[in-house]
Design a binder for these strands. Structure first.
Lengths: 407, 407
DNA sequence: AGGTTTAGTCCATCGGATGGAAAAAAGGGT
DNA sequence: ACCCTTTTTTCCATCCGATGGACTAAACCT
């Protein structure tokens, strides 16, 4: 259903554009905004006045040194708006408080309670969010909302976690309603990979506005950014890449995943099973994701320490992941691949030095500009992304926001 | 680079929205347009007056029968604009003349001259386009442009065919400049799969605005439609899916493609090699794509006639294609898969009855609404899509058109 | 001090969307 | 036959946001 647009939307959109430019380029002057946005000086003048009145941006001290009247640098008022982002990973629960400037004000991480009921975790999340808002001394009216990043499948429209394979107790949990009741904040639920890509898109200074984000956590997922937009798919469940075949000669693991699939190549569960076969670590309880995570940490540490078995496992994993990334780059025609997620900083030492070349070998269309890199955000990328999603939802220019009609 | 918008763009955009609605729903009244677009009656009145003055739409006879003033049905004036679409396939050269209503006025298909020089083919295309415009008695001023669908890799920005593996002589051919000089028309070059998806998007009445299009021709490619937009990728070379592994136990073919890859599973070359191994057809000259195409036609005919070897080959191909489609659906989260291209109507008898179920078995997230279907456009889908791309380029509402700034 | 350069604002205007009133064109009811 | 209702479409005045041009402001340069 294509809908038209009108002037009121236009004004909001342009205001969002200006704020967005300023979030990406702090200290830009009105003249810079004019150049960047293509709007007239007068329009910029009006919009910045409104934004200053709303407390979302402020002027800073002019710096001289150049001919002409010195420009007045504008910056996002970091106290202008906040959001809380939560990442529910089977092994770790991460919460961040983000300000409008994109800075993480506070961060907390704890182990995800295993084998408990969702209500307990919901209550824990709500309490944590409240405590962080209070601890940071933030005006509650300035908190735009609570973002939740969770593994799929989700029903984002309804705000429900449907049936994540790695969170066995979480079936049809109405997270949005529960958390909204508990905190009084608007709640946004989205997939972990979508959130991660959003955080990466925001914080990266790379010129490319298109990339594939490979999320490595207790599971593996991908998301796609094209033209500064994070693709979501029709039901917001984009990125199920675990079943992509990456090794035709892979061994069968005692594991539910597909033989030779990407998940079997790089998920902690699979890596730990492979390591246990070589006797590197004892096989942990495969229903305890914290135990799996710890065992995986041990294997990665062995590789760093020079253990040949562990090194071999990770080198093979890198080759397999490269095949999967090749599929994505070939299909989606993007020049950049970003890897991140809770598992990434344990794998990056083994992966990063070799991955660019391995992926390049997979490409059908040669791509000398190909970049494969680690996330610039870090381990808490999904939680930060969940918070970014909230800010973006209220503040970012979306073409859809230009169209008149429904909610 | 995010840019703002202004009122002039707004007017153009709304005009495009109205025309677009009318192209999808012929006979809609001004009141219908108001409901569909969300714009005010007055705005619709103004826009429709402009469109009528421009000869792009016209009023038809009101039909009574309901209370109230009868609405005046508006239809796209099929003589209001035209475009020519050309599909360069290694085996077939297809040209269509499309009117604004989306109807194919004329269509021609010939075998692609093998082992000739691009200048000859360019001259042939220009002559064909001219002849068709003349034959149809179309006012040349109403021809918006010439669209070319070609296999990748392309440099769409420059209008250059870079180095298609199946068109050995076509390296760095500046198709846009050559054809623009020869015909005096604006020329739009785009990838065959992108064009095909565009045609499908336009002609399909299905409610879903998101699907994956699997293009089966002399090669295999995919394109993705999300939210009524055809994804293009950063360099317009989206959809290289031939190397996706779809069978871990596939045999090695005497062929350049990847063992077990999607191309090896369903491309005419690979099918013919498989059939020749079983003695079903003599192995043709593998540099002559017309010969390969004919041999492939023979194999498909044998399957229809009940030959068990040919049937087995196509059934295996269907299973392999389903694995590839599963990868795409899992990754992109779309509820619909459309198959088309020059090869499709030879394969559909073997593929369609089984493909939906085979793909469903591949999905990580169950999707009861999954639809796998053949293109509603037919064999000339890429040529028609190339023509549609021209119409869309000049007439369709694109969010990007709302933004001020560069060309 | 005056010229130059760049930044930002004031004012009048323009273009486009809109709400309300009105006109138009039918059917339904008495 | 007449009036009322319903629905479509247009006219008019108005509103709102963007814009161009003139103007002010504040630096550096010579």
């Amino acid at each position: 259903m294509r809908r038209g647009s009108n002037q009121l939307r236009l004004a909001d959109f342009n205001q969002a554009v200006v704020l967005d430019v300023l979030r990406r380029a702090p200290g830009a002057s009105r003249a810079d905004l004019r150049r960047e946005s293509g709007l007239s000086p007068q329009t910029i003048s009006n919009i910045t006045r409104r934004l200053i009145d709303d407390g979302l941006i402020r002027e800073t001290e002019p710096a001289g040194g150049v001919r002409g009247r010195p420009s007045i640098p504008l910056v996002v008022d970091s106290d202008g708006a906040f959001s809380v982002g939560v990442h529910i990973d089977p092994a770790r629960l991460t919460t961040v408080l983000l300000d409008l400037d994109g800075q993480v004000r506070l961060r907390r991480q704890e182990r995800t309670p295993q084998a408990t009921n969702p209500p307990e975790v919901t209550a824990l999340i709500a309490a944590t969010a409240d405590a962080m808002i209070h601890e940071a001394g933030v005006d509650r009216d300035r908190v735009l909302g609570l973002g939740i990043a969770a593994p799929g499948p989700l029903d984002v429209h309804a705000g429900v976690i449907v049936d994540p394979p790695q969170l066995p107790n979480w079936r049809n949990v109405n997270l949005r309603a529960d958390l909204s009741d508990a905190t009084g904040l608007p709640v946004l639920l989205d997939k972990d990979v979508t959130a991660a890509a959003t955080a990466e898109l925001r914080s990266s200074t790379a010129p490319s506005n298109a990339f594939v984000f490979l999320y490595l956590g207790s599971g593996v997922g991908a998301s796609v950014v094209v033209d500064n937009q994070v693709l979501r798919g029709v039901t917001n469940n984009i990125g199920e890449v675990g079943d992509i075949i990456v090794d035709t000669d892979a061994e069968q693991l005692e594991w539910a995943g597909r033989r030779g699939g990407l998940a079997a190549a790089c998920v902690p569960e699979a890596l730990v099973i492979q390591a246990a076969r070589l006797g590197l670590v004892p096989l942990p309880d495969l229903t305890d994701y914290v135990a799996i995570d710890d065992a995986c940490t041990a294997v990665c540490a062995q590789a760093v320490a020079g253990n040949s078995g562990a090194t071999w496992i990770l080198a093979r994993a890198a080759r397999r992941v490269a095949v999967g990334l090749g599929v994505l780059v070939n299909l989606l025609d993007v020049p950049r691949v970003v890897l991140g997620g809770p598992l990434w900083n344990r794998l990056s030492a083994a992966f990063l030095p070799v991955l660019t070349e391995l992926v390049a070998e997979e490409l059908v269309v040669a791509r000398p500009d190909l970049v494969v890199e680690g996330s610039s955000v870090g381990e808490h990328v999904a939680a930060q992304g969940a918070a970014e999603l909230v800010l973006d939802h209220f503040l970012a220019p979306r073409a859809a926001a230009l169209l008149v009609g429904e909610a």
